[in-house]
Design a protein around this nucleic acid. Structure first.
Lengths: 259, 259
DNA sequence: CCCCTGTTGTTGTAGTTGTAACAACATTTA
DNA sequence: TAAATGTTGTTACAACTACAACAACAGGGG
């Protein structure tokens, strides 16, 4: 019965991540369409079994998503979506800041002591989303220098943004193919146009044009694009691993075509 | 085994509202304490069955809460709590703004047509949290006047704040007992000190000192403190209901003790 | 009386939780 | 070298919980 202009199932998915169950979503959506209804009316509109409507309305009422009358039979109305969702998010962010403090307590307690094991490891990151956010975090942590080898890969918008926001004391270099005009190089970065690409696929054994980020000559992130369908990247603070890429970077700089 | 400085179960509750299961919470908390561990080590620290550790780590990895090495055996490390939780919230708020648009589409579609039924209803609101947030919303919606009868009840901080932020064209009056100094009256509100309280408990049949909010002489919210342990309030746009309270308000103003 | 409201209890189902077993590999021991 | 031992990663499956769906029933008003 329910009209599905913006796909009801899609909305349910999103509301689930805000802590609502399928029925809670259906009932709330139904109430948005009718401006006050009794339990049976809600049942008819939403398709939710009538008996299940009552406990669901209870929970929605506690979450401040619906209002109730004292009349008999009771009538229910949805609170406006803006207000309702803000209320949900408020509770979530409230919990999140609380738990953030609790977790950082545990975390800080350890990081104050250990500081040696981790840096010899090579970590890998799956999924383009994760790779993107980790890259941004990595660049943000820069204290002296950022070197990016981005021959043909175009820098994503968040990365351009975080580079632009770096302090003037940080030296940013970006190596590109230099054959075509690029508009993804932030103004505070120095573009190194490499006339001839030194066939990085032979070095890494990869087909895809690689992208490497070296920060402070101490931390490296390299995209390896895992052959499989899911993209993948490596990250390490291991001196040996870092040296490999700083060396490669020096080699690349030797091929800069001066203007 | 796990150290519980800020109560592990409490953290689990909070992480659950961010979309993590019990196991996911336990594994993540365990990883925060050790700076890189193998699956079996994680099993030992967290208490989660070893076989269950692997799928859980998969999910955590997809949510960008842990990093993985390519070594054998695989090693896992937690991403710092700050970063991790921000990442979780980012996804939630992203979903929320999306769903907000979808829902307001449905909502606006109706509110443009119907505009009559709802205002005869008397709604009630349960729980002090809900009452507070609804009161703030109500006051924010004021276009010409706000009248608050708050004889002994002290205005909450959010309410003071929203009153202060009202435009100068809106007339704000607050009736108080006037016997003791009150520091909860915002500067843009006019305080009406009522020398003698006209025994509102007789009118409403309540023991508790009542608090009434009248906005634009069209919308009323009244606290009725439901006898039961859970506080309760009424809200209505019904003319009859509103008249009752505007009349009462006029009666109260007759008792203002002029300075 | 019948119809509707609101409540209770039962059953089915999906996802989480927990146990057990297995192949692959490395290390140790005889 | 061959057997014994231990670890890793995977799979299968039982137990449990929360949600979903339905049937039944007491009260209430026409």
């Amino acid at each position: 019965m329910a009209k599905t202009i913006p796909s009801t199932t899609m909305i349910q998915e999103h509301l689930k991540s805000l802590g609502l169950t399928k029925y809670e979503s259906l009932v709330y959506i139904a109430l948005l369409q009718v401006d006050g209804a009794t339990a049976t009316e809600i049942h008819e509109i939403s398709g939710v079994p009538r008996a299940s409507v009552y406990p669901v309305l209870d929970k929605l009422s506690k979450k401040q998503l619906v209002n109730v009358t004292t009349t008999s039979p009771k009538r229910f109305a949805a609170t406006p979506p803006d207000e309702a969702i803000d209320s949900l998010i408020a509770r979530i962010t409230q919990d999140s800041t609380a738990v953030k403090h609790e977790l950082t307590t545990i975390y800080e307690e350890r990081t104050s002591m250990n500081h040696a094991e981790r840096q010899e490891m090579i970590w890998n990151i799956h999924g383009s989303e994760n790779i993107g956010s980790r890259a941004v975090d990595l660049i943000r942590s820069a204290e002296s220098s950022v070197a990016i080898l981005s021959v043909t890969t175009v820098l994503s918008l968040p990365i351009q943004k975080i580079i632009s926001s770096l302090g003037p004391g940080i030296n940013v270099e970006i190596a590109t193919a230099g054959t075509s005009a690029r508009d993804d190089i932030p103004p505070n970065a120095q573009e190194l146009k490499i006339g001839m690409v030194p066939h990085p696929e032979n070095i890494l054994g990869e087909k895809q044009p690689p992208c490497i980020i070296i920060v402070d000559r101490q931390r490296v992130m390299a995209f390896v694009s895992d052959d499989a369908e899911i993209p993948s990247a490596l990250y390490s603070e291991s001196p040996g691993f870092v040296n490999l890429f700083t060396g490669y970077w020096g080699f690349v700089k030797g091929h800069v075509s001066l203007p």
